[in-house]
């Protein structure tokens, strides 16, 4: 019996990733591969280490042990923490996107919506004002923000609009890998559905690879191909999303699934 030949190689290879806060464990010995076009969900309750792991993966924090190897466009697989600081910064600005739970962490609140989107393009070398404004308009449209809001300041936007603006700012530079931390966490339920639908569409259309942290198993089911379940800093179960949710093996995953309220 053969297994399917995997096309190409992983976009991200993570090995033995560990981060401690003093003597306390943030995340411990996390190992996995992320494939191109794959959406990986990281689930678990508050304090399970999901956000710590995401911050280490996305180079917002340096791990105490382990490796994160990213398949760069120019030079193939590179250890992210062995890159020079400017190279790492460039990677994070261009090839990666980071969508924070609270949009204000990912946006510049003192410049217009259009400038928030255009700024990312200028960071990768775009200089032509008309083209930058055109791309900003296009992306506002794709995240369902009316074109006539382009010159408005973000503080005049609702929570859902801010989150969509943050997504546009991240995707305008055509990243290949996007990290999301509870992307729907700060939104009302009705607004969540719209954002989820939008994210599903964008991820499929752009063939993005995504690592999304969420405590909401319904969000995980809708977005993720594969799930990792974390508890006390360690991955306790991993697999196909619907298999993990419908036939959980680990006692903790069973508890998590059994604790969901069904309306």
């Amino acid at each position: 019996m053969t297994t399917l030949a995997m096309t190409g190689r992983p976009l991200l290879q993570v090995e033995g990733l560990t981060h401690r806060y003093g003597s306390r464990i943030g995340c411990r010995d996390v190992t996995f591969d992320l494939w191109p076009g794959e959406v990986l969900g990281i689930v678990g309750e508050s304090g399970s280490g999901k956000t710590t792991l995401l911050k280490c993966l996305s180079a917002q924090m340096e791990p105490h042990a382990g490796h994160v190897v990213y398949d760069t466009r120019e030079d193939g697989p590179q250890d992210v923490f062995a890159l020079s600081e400017p190279r790492r910064r460039l990677l994070m600005r261009t090839d990666w996107g980071i969508v924070h739970q609270h949009p204000v962490e990912g946006l510049r609140m003192k410049v217009s919506a259009g400038a928030n989107v255009g700024e990312r393009l200028m960071a990768v070398g775009a200089r032509h004002y008309g083209e930058i404004r055109g791309a900003a308009l296009d992306w506002l449209g794709r995240v369902e923000i009316a074109r006539d809001r382009i010159d408005d300041m973000p503080r005049t936007f609702s929570g859902g609009m801010l989150q969509r603006l943050q997504i546009a700012r991240n995707l305008v530079s055509r990243p290949r890998l996007v990290f999301m931390d509870e992307p729907t966490g700060s939104l009302d339920v009705s607004v969540q559905a719209r954002l989820l639908d939008l994210l599903r569409g964008l991820v499929a259309d752009l063939g993005l690879s995504v690592i999304v942290v969420t405590h909401d198993l319904a969000v995980a089911r809708l977005l993720a191909h594969r799930l990792m379940v974390m508890r006390a800093g360690a991955v306790v179960e991993e697999g196909l999303t619907d298999q993990v949710l419908d036939d959980p093996q680990h006692p903790y995953t069973q508890l998590l699934v059994a604790s969901i309220l069904h309306p």
């Binding site: 399917l4 191909h225 697999g239 619907d242 298999q243």
Partner: peptide, 30 residues
């Protein structure tokens, strides 16, 4: 592949290959 088998094999012909759902990776099942 929605439930995980504890024993046995589930062989499916897929584009000229045979895949065992009971042992396949998430990517392969997708």
């Amino acid at each position: 592949g929605n439930y995980r088998a504890q024993a046995g094999s589930i062989a499916i012909r897929h584009r000229g290959q045979t895949i065992d759902v009971a042992a396949a990776s998430a990517q392969t099942i997708l």
